[in-house]
Structure formats: structure tokens, C-alpha cells
């Protein structure tokens, strides 16, 4: 248990990013990778118009937050994320949880939990 390292990917709307970062900071999650992505799921896109021509846009702009944790309990992260992101509507996003085999810090060669 103690050496388990977990990766959590959160996909959600751009507008929630800052609130989520603040909430994660409060439970001592300080490291993360954030990317701007386009995605679609249950949520449909919207229509755009170019010189009067309607265009269906299926992919919507979202953010992907990647976190790797070992010391902070996974449950705490999931609860925090759900509390911040939940509105009950489609488009709130998804959370994916993975096991991580190893972590290596390049600057000093530290591995596993010590590298986080």
C-alpha cells in the first residue's frame, strides 16, 4: 500500500480549472500538468456560422489535469474534484484513475515515491 503511486486524469470544462487548482492546493496537491484539449462525449457541440454557413462543432474545448499522487489518499482527491466539478449537467467531465509503475526524477535520479 505504502509504495502505491496513482495517476489521476481529470477532464472538465475550462471555466472550472482555477477553482479546481485552488481546491487541490488545499489538500496539498501542488504538482500537476494541465493541457488544453478538445473533446466530445455525451455533451453535444454547438453551431457556428461562417459567412452565413452553419457548421456543426462536435469537439468542445476542455482542460485535462494530470496528477500523480502517493501520499495524499486517492479518495480525498476524488472527493475534492467531484465536489468542485459537479453541477449535475452533462459536460461536467470525467475522472480516470491509473496505477503508476514507477516515477523517475531526471535531475537526481530519484525513483518511486521519493521522486514525487
Amino acid at each position: 500500500m505504502s509504495d502505491k503511486i496513482t495517476k489521476v486524469d481529470i477532464l472538465t470544462s475550462e471555466s472550472k480549472l482555477e477553482d479546481l487548482m485552488d481546491a487541490l492546493n488545499k489538500i496539498d496537491i501542488t504538482g500537476m500538468t494541465v493541457s488544453s484539449v478538445l473533446g466530445c462525449g455525451v455533451q453535444k457541440g454547438h453551431k457556428e456560422y461562417y459567412r452565413g454557413t452553419a457548421v456543426d462543432i462536435k469537439l468542445l474545448p476542455k482542460v485535462k489535469i494530470e496528477i500523480v499522487i502517493a501520499n495524499v489518499p486517492l479518495e480525498k482527491v476524488l472527493e475534492t474534484a467531484k465536489a468542485v466539478l459537479h453541477t449535475g449537467q452533462i459536460g461536467d467531465g470525467k475522472i480516470f484513475v491509473y496505477d503508476v509503475e514507477n516515477v523517475i526524477r531526471i535531475s537526481d535520479g530519484a525513483e518511486g515515491k521519493a521522486a514525487l
Binding site: 470544462s13 471555466s15 453551431k47 457556428e48 456560422y49 462543432i57
Partner: peptide
Amino acid sequence: TEGLDVALHGENAYNI
């Protein structure tokens, strides 16, 4: 939140 371009004008400046 959505942005005025899409919300008001149905247009997006940058389609990446």
C-alpha cells in the same frame, strides 16, 4: 464562460 465569440456571434477565432 463560453466566450462572447461563440455565445453571441456563433464564431470561433481559432480552430486549432
